[in-house]
Simulated assay, not measured.
Amino acid sequence: MIENALPVQTDGRLLRGEATRERVLDAAERLFAAEGFDAVSIRRIAAEAGVTLGVVGFHGGPKQNLMRTVLERRVEALSTRRLAALEALRAANSPPALRDLVDAYLTPYLEYASQGDPQWRAYARLIARIANDDRWYPSVGGLYDPVAREYLQAMQQARPDAPQQELATALTLTVASMLSLVASRARIAGLSNRAPGSPMEYRDTLITFCMGGIDAVSST
């Protein structure tokens, strides 16, 4: 019995530590999303998470590193789904159709954003904030670019005559449209006199819109 006690205690400590880490990251995500990175202090994050300053430092490090960690856990989930979708497309059809590639890249984010999880809503607001701020690219671009490059390569195979710069620009603008749609659908609702729908309800319209731009630049 004594031999079994230590692993149980160790597992308990690990579980509590992981729960605390998630609480810190959740708090940072909410505050960064609501107020912006510059306006939020580590002390505010600690108070929001109900932990000490040292606990925030232990789980997140300096504020810049904490931001990257907040983003990293979401990117990991998105990248897993996007790569699985890309592999499925490659297995079914080589090269995959361009519209299918756009769908496979956009849909995982739309699905997560449509689940009603308040933390994913916070992430949506946060990534919309930093996507338009070039200072973040050197520190967080490496989180997003590897999968984007995989898709860009597949797009190039689907449209071999299209200049790579044009396709890269089109993919970047496609992502910007996706982020804008998820972060705020209030104006769409206002102009159409309807209640805002979930991001997934706009999926077909978003893909068609983005494909129009991609088709235009890749056929020149």
Rank of each mutant, 00 (worst) to 15 (best):
E150K: 07
E166R: 10
L173K: 00
L171D: 02
A148C: 11
E166Q: 11
Y151F: 15
P160F: 14
S139H: 11
Y144M: 10
P160N: 14
Q153F: 07
Q164A: 15
Y144W: 12
Y151T: 06
L167D: 01
L171F: 09
L173C: 08
L152P: 01
Y151W: 09
A154D: 05
Q165A: 15
Q157I: 03
L173Q: 04
T169A: 00
Q156E: 12
T174H: 01
L143T: 03
S139E: 11
R149F: 09
D145C: 04
V175I: 15
R159P: 01
P146N: 10
Q165I: 13
E150P: 00
A148H: 08
Y151L: 00
Q153H: 13
T169E: 05
A148Y: 05
D145Y: 10
A158Q: 11
P160Y: 14
R149T: 13
A162T: 08
D145I: 11
A154N: 08
R159W: 11
P146G: 07
G142F: 02
Q165C: 12
D161R: 15
A154R: 00
G142S: 09
T172V: 06
A154F: 05
Q153W: 06
P160M: 13
V175C: 00
P160H: 14
V140F: 02
Q165E: 15
Q164W: 14
P146R: 11
A168M: 10
A154G: 05
T169Y: 05
L173G: 01
S139K: 09
L167G: 04
A168K: 07
Q153E: 13
R159T: 12
L143S: 08
S139R: 13
Q164C: 12
Y144P: 04
Y151R: 08
L171V: 09
A158S: 15
Y144V: 13
P160C: 13
Q165P: 07
M155H: 00
L143Y: 06
P163S: 10
V147N: 00
V147T: 14
G141D: 11
V175H: 02
L173R: 07
M155V: 04
Y151V: 05
A170F: 02
R159D: 04
Y144T: 13
A168P: 02
L171E: 05
A148L: 09
S139A: 14
Q156G: 08
G142M: 01
Q165W: 14
A148T: 12
Q164T: 15
A168Y: 03
G141A: 09
A170M: 03
D145T: 14
P160V: 12
Y144R: 13
R159H: 11
G141C: 08
Q153M: 07
Q156V: 00
Q165R: 15
R149W: 10
L152A: 06
A154I: 00
Q153L: 08
P160R: 15
P163Q: 12
L173D: 03
A162C: 07
Y151M: 04
V175D: 01
T169R: 01
M155G: 07
A148N: 10
Y144I: 12
L167R: 00
A162Q: 07
P146L: 03
L152H: 03
L173N: 02
S139Y: 08
P163G: 07
E150Q: 12
T169C: 03
P160E: 13
G141H: 11
E166A: 14
D161A: 15
